[in-house]
Structures are given as C-alpha cells and as structure tokens.
Amino acid sequence: MPDHLARLDEEHRAASDQLMALRPDFDGIVAASADSNADDEHDPEGSTVAFERSQVGALIEQAELRMVEIESARERVLSGTYGVCERCGQAIPAARLDARPIARTCVDCA
C-alpha cells in the first residue's frame, strides 16, 4: 500500500513553497503601485500592474485552496476513507490518486 500521507506531505510542501515565493511578489507589486500615482485606467503601465497583481493574487488563492484540499485528503487518510469516491462509494483508481492525490471522486463521477 502506498504511503499516502508521505505523498500528501510532499504536495503540501510544494504548495507551501509556492506560497512563500508568491507572497513577496504580490507584496512587491502592491508596494510598487502604492508609491505611484499611476491610474490603472489611464496610465499605459497601469493595466500591466493591475494584470500582474491579479495574476499573482489568483495563484496565491489557488495554492491556498490546494493546501485546504491537501489537509482534507490527510483527514480522509486518517479516517480510512481516502481513495473512496464521495459520490458513488467505489474505489478511486490508484492511477487517479497518483495523478491527483487530493481526488475526492472516481473518474466516472468527476
């Protein structure tokens, strides 16, 4: 039986590393635009700054959500329900769990 907790720990570290890299980028973008009197709507560089802030913000949200999903998967491992489809109750194939360790459903129910 594969060590699901170890795999989920790896996923958690990767998401955490991503957050640690993205947060300073986001803070830097916000700080740079705060010191500027640039108007996103009328400044030729403004839309680029707004786009970058939006992109990095979305990546942060995705990484935070992934960490929540990883914690939920860890709870399923500990409760003995990891690898069981939440919709139909059938086993989630190992290949799906290898590709997506946070999967809650089998391929048919996804």
Score class of each variant (00 low, 15 high):
Val56Met: 03
Ala32Lys: 14
Asp39Trp: 03
Glu69His: 09
Arg13Lys: 14
Arg74Asn: 05
Asp25Gln: 15
Val68Phe: 14
Gly46Thr: 02
Ala58Cys: 03
Ala38His: 00
Val30Phe: 09
Arg13Val: 13
Arg96Ala: 02
Ala73Pro: 01
Phe26Thr: 01
Asp17Lys: 02
Val107Leu: 09
Met20Glu: 15
Val107Ala: 12
Ala14Glu: 14
Ala95Cys: 00
Ala94Lys: 08
Leu22Thr: 07
Ile29His: 06
Leu19Thr: 08
Glu71His: 09
Ala73Asp: 04
Glu41Leu: 04
Ala94Leu: 10
Pro24Asp: 08
Leu97Ile: 04
Thr81His: 08
Cys109Met: 05
Glu52Lys: 08
Ala14Cys: 01
Glu69Arg: 13
Ala95Thr: 04
Pro2Ala: 07
Cys106Glu: 05
Ala94Phe: 03
Arg74Ser: 07
Gly46Asp: 06
Glu86Ser: 05
Ala58Lys: 12
Glu52Val: 04
Ala63Asp: 11
Ala73Phe: 05
Glu75Tyr: 03
Asp17Leu: 04
Asp17Val: 00
Thr81Ser: 15
Tyr82Phe: 12
Gly57Met: 05
Leu65Ala: 14
Gly89Tyr: 13
Ser47Gln: 12
Ala31Pro: 02
Gly57Asn: 05
Leu65Ser: 14
Ala21Pro: 10
Ser79Ala: 08
Met1Ala: 13
Leu19Ser: 06
Ala99Asn: 00
Asp39Lys: 01
Asp9Tyr: 08
Ala58Asp: 07
Pro24Ile: 08
Pro44Ser: 03
Val30His: 08
